[in-house]
């Protein structure tokens, strides 16, 4: 990213904020409904000192990360198994093909019925939703491993396990990270959706519901800014990790998000 580009980006953000501010101040947009950016930013800063908000942010983020970690722990081994054992992949394919397109938020009402414990309920829907991108990317990555690399190691007398550890897994790693990046976005959506539907003691979703019932759109937008910041941070970290760890790999992944 060059200097000029950074400056342009900053100008763009400033311009957007200025236009929004003007639109509200001039009465073009209703101030009671859409507060001006200066107010939103002030509220966002004040939220840092608001224990109700901070405990909510910490709670949501910790459930988000726990769910994501569990999903990685389940999906990567499962993906490796299905990506290397052909008959297992064939047998489970129809099941996966059916389970995958179920919109994960639809499971929240079911989870509320089935799992009485609030934390467990939320974690399980997060895990379920984030399993898929990681699983699919792991399987896909294993399929893309260069057969020549595998053969050359095998020709030196290495066994299946050694080939898996030395060739297949390293060359699949970038795909796995891409899967994790996709999952992180979905997991955050689920973490907040579960709070919107099931409520709970704390959480970003809980905070937003309370702010909304008091017609405090400034607080809703301020909280959304923090949620967006969390999303940007995790995405940036994962993209940076991808670039740093796998410079040798030019993943031509189909989608950007």
């Amino acid at each position: 990213m060059t200097g000029a580009r950074l400056v342009r980006g900053a100008v763009g953000v400033a311009g957007f904020l200025a236009v929004a501010e003007l639109a509200v101040r001039s009465g073009y947009l209703d101030e009671r409904l859409l507060p001006p950016p200066t107010v939103v930013v002030r509220e966002a800063v004040l939220l840092v000192a608001d224990p109700e908000f901070t405990s909510g942010l910490v709670g949501t983020v910790s459930r988000w990360l726990t769910g994501l970690a569990l999903a990685i722990a389940i999906a990567v081994p499962a993906g490796v198994l299905l990506g290397t054992v052909a008959w297992a992949e064939r047998a489970t394919r129809p099941l996966l093909e059916f389970l995958r397109p179920i919109p994960s938020v639809a499971l929240i009402p079911l989870a509320i019925l089935l799992i009485p414990d609030d934390f467990l309920m939320k974690i399980s829907v997060i895990v379920y939703a984030s399993l898929w991108p990681i699983l699919i990317n792991t399987m896909y990555g294993l399929r893309e491993v260069d057969p020549l690399a595998k053969d050359s190691l095998r020709s030196f007398g290495f066994g299946r396990l050694a080939v898996l550890c030395r060739v297949s897994l390293p060359s699949t790693a970038p795909f796995i990270v891409t899967g994790v990046r996709l999952s992180a976005g979905i997991a955050l959506i689920l973490a907040i959706s579960a709070e919107l539907l099931a409520g709970g003691a704390e959480g970003l979703g809980v905070f937003v519901i309370r702010a909304g019932s008091g017609n405090r759109t400034d607080l809703v937008i301020a909280a959304a800014l923090w949620a967006g910041t969390a999303g940007v941070l995790s995405n940036t970290a994962l993209v940076a990790a991808e670039r740093r760890l796998f410079r040798w790999h030019h993943v031509r992944s189909g989608a950007v998000t």
Binding site: G9, A10, G15, G185, I189
Partner: peptide
């Protein structure tokens, strides 16, 4: 694109459910 990219990247990182309450009020 340089002018709007930071805005786009931020906006897409905001989980949409966070905004449901806002849209309901709006």
């Amino acid at each position: 694109a340089h002018y709007v990219e930071p805005l786009i990247h931020f906006a897409r990182a905001v989980p949409p459910p966070m905004l449901i309450t806002l849209f309901v009020l709006l």
